[in-house]
């Protein structure tokens, strides 16, 4: 996706609440702003961390929602006003950086544990870690309040407006998403990012050139942990708290689904996939039998993946390539991450 297109999409998203207000009644415009677009952005950030790893490192990790959850739990444990108060007392200005630090460290740890594995084995080890953390949170009362989780994480008051105001929430989520998206695009052009892509294509050759492959991999997981942590802080505030269900198997797989339908070929795929997911997750039950709407969601995702193995972004790129064959090669598509 070219920079021009990204900026266009950003402009559209900045204007979205106003545009929605023109075509929808006020309460529905607000719903679309916060609960479709806003939700798509915050879960998109978590998916971005996976897309970053998969696109530029070739690592498909199932632990990204867990890292987001670690940030969410750290926030809920530390911040004032959460119920029950585990540690409590910290203002958001202190608790949010602490949560991001926790997610980054946890990301480094996951990277270190999984450093020798690739492909399906990496998937399995990250899945095992994710399930371990979720079950631990579910059974530990003292720190995680078990099955019921920690509630009432309402978010700070910014500029005199409570965080749950749909527009404030939306624009903070948008700013975070845009900054992280730009950050990823910048990072992959730095020497670190180039080495990472080298590791994806041929780790032995990179090692022979004198780079420490393991260290780069662990650092990439740390970066992904930070991104997922940003998403985790926002999703926790969006959900007014966190419980083990938010980081369980279903939630972890949802992040993978979002990334795959959006496309693992470009970071934009995370947000495209997340938007499609949010729309279908919300409206499938209105479009189809309420007892069976998961079937519709499944069929749509199956259709997307069948029609375009590299997701919606890949489809768009190919359509663009058909229209302008001379420019199709300007940004070579990274090879699909699933094959490592």
């Amino acid at each position: 996706m070219s920079a021009r297109l990204s900026l266009l999409a950003l402009a559209l998203l900045v204007l979205a609440p106003a545009l929605l207000g023109l075509v929808l009644p006020p309460n529905q415009a607000q719903f679309w702003t916060a609960n479709i677009l806003g939700r798509a952005l915050v879960y998109g950030i978590v998916a971005l961390s996976l897309t970053f790893l998969a696109t530029y490192g070739g690592f498909v990790s199932l632990a990204q929602m867990t890292l987001a959850g670690i940030a969410g739990y750290a926030l809920a444990i530390l911040v004032e006003g959460a119920v029950p108060g585990i540690v409590g007392g910290l203002p958001y200005a202190a608790a949010v950086p602490a949560a991001l630090l926790a997610a980054t460290l946890a990301g480094l740890l996951v990277g270190a544990i999984a450093v020798r594995t690739r492909d399906i084995y990496l998937l399995m080890i990250t899945l095992a870690l994710a399930m371990g953390v979720a079950r631990f949170a579910e059974s530990n009362i003292d720190w995680f309040n078990g099955y019921e989780g920690i509630r009432n994480v309402v978010g700070p008051v910014l500029f005199g407006v409570p965080f749950r105001d749909p527009h404030l929430f939306y624009y903070v989520a948008l700013a975070a998403a845009a900054a992280l998206y730009a950050g990823v695009l910048y990072l992959v052009r730095t020497p670190f990012g180039l080495v990472l892509q080298g590791i994806r294509d041929n780790p032995r050759r990179v090692a022979a050139l004198g780079y420490d492959v393991s260290l780069h991999r662990i650092a990439a997981f740390g970066v992904a942990g930070f991104i997922a942590g940003c998403g985790g802080v926002l999703t926790t505030i969006y959900n007014i708290g966190i419980s083990p269900g938010s980081i369980g198997l279903g939630a972890s797989v949802n992040i993978l689904i979002i990334s795959v339908i959006g496309g693992l070929g470009h970071p934009a795929g995370a947000f495209v996939g997340s938007l499609i997911f949010a729309v279908f997750d919300t409206f499938a039950a209105s479009l189809y039998d309420r007892d069976r709407f998961n079937t519709l969601i499944g069929l749509v995702f199956l259709g997307i993946v069948l029609a375009s193995p590299d997701g919606i972004v890949g489809l768009a790129r190919r359509l663009g390539g058909l229209r302008r064959p001379s420019r199709a090669g300007e940004q070579p598509a990274p090879r699909p991450a699933e094959t490592g």
Binding site: Q28, N35, R39, N239, S243, G245
Partner: peptide, 16 residues
């Protein structure tokens, strides 16, 4: 039976 899913559905019912 997940808290965040219930919340998303309730928001849809009330706001949409």
């Amino acid at each position: 039976a997940r808290a965040d899913v219930a919340l998303a559905r309730a928001r849809k019912l009330v706001e949409q």
